[in-house]
Design a protein around this nucleic acid. Sequence first.
RNA 1: GGCGGCGUGGCCAAGUGGUCUAAGGCGAAGGUCUGCAAAACCUUUAUUCAUCGGUUCAAAUCCGAUCGCCGCCUCCA
Length: 468
Amino acid sequence: MLIYNTFSRKKEEFEPVNPPAVTMYICGPTVYDYFHIGNARSFIMGDIIRRYLIFRGYRVKFVMNITDIDDKIIKKAAEEKTDTSGIASRFSDAFLHDLEKLKINQADVFPRATEHIEEIIDVIKKIELNGAAYDGLDSIYYDISKFREYGKLSGKKLDELESGARVEVNSAKRDPLDFALWKKAKPGEPSWESPWGPGRPGWHIECSAMSMKHLGESIDIHCGGNDLIFPHHENEIAQSEIATGKKFVKYWLHFGFLNIQEEKMSKSLGNFFTAREILGKYPAEALRLLYLQTHYSGPLSFTEDLLISASKGFERIKNFALLIKENINSSPAYGESRFDFEKYRLKFTEVMDDDFNTPKGLAVFYDFIKDANSFIQNNKPGKEFFREAYELTKAIGETVFGIVHFDEINAKTEAGIESKLIELLIEMRQQAKLDKNYKLADEIRLKLGAIGVTLQDSKEGTTYRITV
RNA sequence: GGCGGCGUGGCCAAGUGGUCUAAGGCGAAGGUCUGCAAAACCUUUAUUCAUCGGUUCAAAUCCGAUCGCCGCCUCCA
C-alpha cells in the first residue's frame, strides 16, 4: 500500500511501526463556532482513510483532538459575555453531533486540551530541560534556533522564512518564528497553574502532548488540512522531537482545500457554508460522495450544483442498495449466480491501495452497480447472488465509503396493515388501468408518491417502494 | 520575494512514458420497457489532454518557455 507522505513529498510503501496496529492522529477543530464544509472535507477524508485501513486488516487507533481553549474561544466568550467553557462545551457538542450526522465514525479518543494540562506541562518541562524554551515575559516560547531541522516538513529554509516573516508588535520573542508554548494569563483570562505561573497552553503544544499520551511518542499517521503544514505541524515536530529525541510521525497526510469561487473557503473570508446548513438541504451521503470523487490531496471547487449532481449519483446507489435489500430474502433459493464479485473487490483494493485513490475506487463501485443491475435484468439470480451483492455493497459502500446505510433503507413494511392497504390501492389502480381510466390510475400513483410510496410498473406487475 | 499545487469532454474528475482514439459521475440525445411515468439497462456524446517549442521509437504523462488560476509563508481543515 502506498501513501503520499508530505514529509518526503513522495509516495511511500506504508509500513506501520507495529503492524497490524496503526496509530493515527487527526487535527480536530477549535470549538468556537460551527464548522464549515471545508473543515468537513478533512474530517470526512480522514474518516474514510481510517475506514479503509481497517478494511485492509489494520487495527487502527484513531485520535481526534478538540481544542477547547484558545484565543478565538476567549474572544467569542467575551463577545457573548459568557465564559470560555460554556462556549467550548456548546460548540464541541455541536461538533460531535454534526460529525455523527455526516456519518463519520467516532474517534477512539477525542482528547481535549483542558483535560490534558498536566501532560502539556510535562512536555513543556522536557523542552525546557533540553534548552529549547525561554521565558519571554508574556509567554514561554519555543526557541526554534535550538532545533536544527526546523522547516523540514514544510520545506522552508530558515533565512527565507525570517526575511518574509511579518514583524510582530511588542513581541517578546527572540525570533519572529518562535512560538508560544505557554501563554501567561492576562487579567480576566481563564488559566491553569503551572511552573511558569497561571496561564494556558499555546496552540501547537496540545497536539504534541495529546498525541504522545494517547498514541505514544512516535506515531504512524498524522493528518490535517494543507494549511496546517506550516506552522502548526512544523511546530509539533520541533516540540515533540526536542522533548523525546524520537521521530514524531512517520507519515504526514494533508488534505486539499475546499475552494469556493476560486478562493479557499474560510471563516475569515466569510465565504462558507456550515456543515449544518448543508445537512439541512442535502443528505450527508451526497457530501461524502462529492468528496470521494476528488482525490483527498487536491483542491476541490465547491458549488451547489456539484452537490446536486452528487445527490443524483447517491440516488442511483441507494436504489441499488434497496434492490439488494428487497431481494436478499425474497428471491428464490436457486438461480443464476455466476457473477464475478471478486473481480470488483480486487480492483477496488488495488486502486485504493495507491494512496487512497477514492475517485478510482468509486468508479469500481459504480461499475459493479451497473454490471450487477444489468445481470439482474438479464438473469434470474437467486439468493446466493443477492447475498454476495449485499456483502460487497456493504464492504465498499458502507464500511469504507459510508455512503450506503442498509439499516436506514426503508424496505417494504413486512406484511403490516400498511402494505396491505398499499397493495389494495395497487389492485384498484390496476383495474382502473384495465378500464383505461388513466386519470384515476395516475392520480393514485401521484397521491401515493406524495406520501412517500413510489409505484413502479413493469411486465411482472406493479411494485412499490417506500422512499421516505 | 521564497515555497507548494493546479490547468483533461457541456460540468466535475481519474490517469503522470506504450494496454490512452483518455476511467467514473452528472448533464444531453436516441433506444429497451411502458397508456404515460419512474427505476434500471443499452448506444452516442474528447483522434484529444492551457499554449508554444524540445527529448524519445513512443508524451496528457519528461524538459524548457509562455499564459491563466489557487494556496502557504499570520489564526485557519
